[in-house]
Nucleic acid binder design. Sequence first.
DNA 1: TCTCCATATTTTGGATCCAATATTGAAAAT
DNA 2: ATTTTCAATATTGGATCCAAAATATGGAGA
Lengths: 206, 206
Amino acid sequence: MLAELRRAITTGRLRPGAPIRQDALADELQVSRVPLREALKTLEGEGLVTHQAHKGYCVATLSLDDLREVYRIRELLEEEAVRRAVPLLTDADLDRLEAAQRDVERAAAAGDVLAMATANRLFHMTLFDCAGMPRLARLIRTLWDTTDAYRSMYYGDGGNRERVVKEHRATLDALRRRSADEAVATLDVHRDHAVTELQSLLPASP
Amino acid sequence: MLAELRRAITTGRLRPGAPIRQDALADELQVSRVPLREALKTLEGEGLVTHQAHKGYCVATLSLDDLREVYRIRELLEEEAVRRAVPLLTDADLDRLEAAQRDVERAAAAGDVLAMATANRLFHMTLFDCAGMPRLARLIRTLWDTTDAYRSMYYGDGGNRERVVKEHRATLDALRRRSADEAVATLDVHRDHAVTELQSLLPASP
DNA sequence: TCTCCATATTTTGGATCCAATATTGAAAAT
DNA sequence: ATTTTCAATATTGGATCCAAAATATGGAGA
């Protein structure tokens, strides 16, 4: 249930800034308000929703500053994850990365925005999980979640999809050669492209 | 209420590993179980408690690996916070840091473990908040929370208290000279001392 | 005596109900 | 006509109640 709610937000079905009507949402999720409120509390902790006493929950919106901050923190944490992961990468790990990348390419070719987002995420998380630092991976995951609602916009553009595919290939090559420096570098440009694109897509004021 | 519960855990009144009896705790906090469960969900998100379906909540315990991981992540994030903060530090900020440090020294002299923990925390958070990155500061805060239950043990030792005082002075000096490098370096040794001490204090197995 | 199984008790998870607060709308006064 | 006030309504927050799951208890059989 919590997963379903999270997906509703990260896929953008519940729009950023929209107020959350507990009664209606509980109805929709076939559950009572108590467990829904618990789920909202965990999502609040993850920064996906905000809460004001006696006014209720809203789907969180990202300001430009927030976006930059999230991406800067990701840069720091993901570099650490990659540097830890590279020496630990097994052939099986590389196979899984390769498989994830094939999914990305398939989704990119099909223009399937949702599939693209999930495949892309799987690719990165597969890598981060190889670092053997579960807390770090979890932190990174929640940082991704906070921008996921906007990511679908990013993948709406075919050019962006193509670029992502190429950048992943570069990362994968670096990983195969066990070059942490290069892997980090390719991921940094990958991220930079995303953040510049997203900045222009972000709503004007918030 | 949530704050009170969080303090009960971070001060160690609720021991790590202890199961949380909702009914009794709700009683104690003068509240019904529903808001308590919401509070527990947010604490779960912060990593202060763990939850198993139909078995309930427990105060989280830290393994050695967890401890090292938390401190490594703190190292990364706090370095960023300090480097951002240093160029932004105003004289008023330095005054606040000085004041916090005086509290630390007073608590250290008095041997007041609890006051020591809160003053120490205030000192560091005051600095981190100067970075102008609220999300980063929040992340660091929650990382601190996860080890707070053990921190009181650390301050139980007078030698540790004395060392903390000295290390803070070194950091404060570096900040006054606007030397980010030195500030980061002093904080790194500060952290390293803490983590080595804590490792020996940690329960044997978990 | 020890083990295993059935039952009782405790504890959690979820649904409903009630109170407190905020929002909306209409009427009255300027 | 505009603004202000007050009442009606909607929505959240919290308490109680019920069902489901887990744990403890005790008795029967080996």
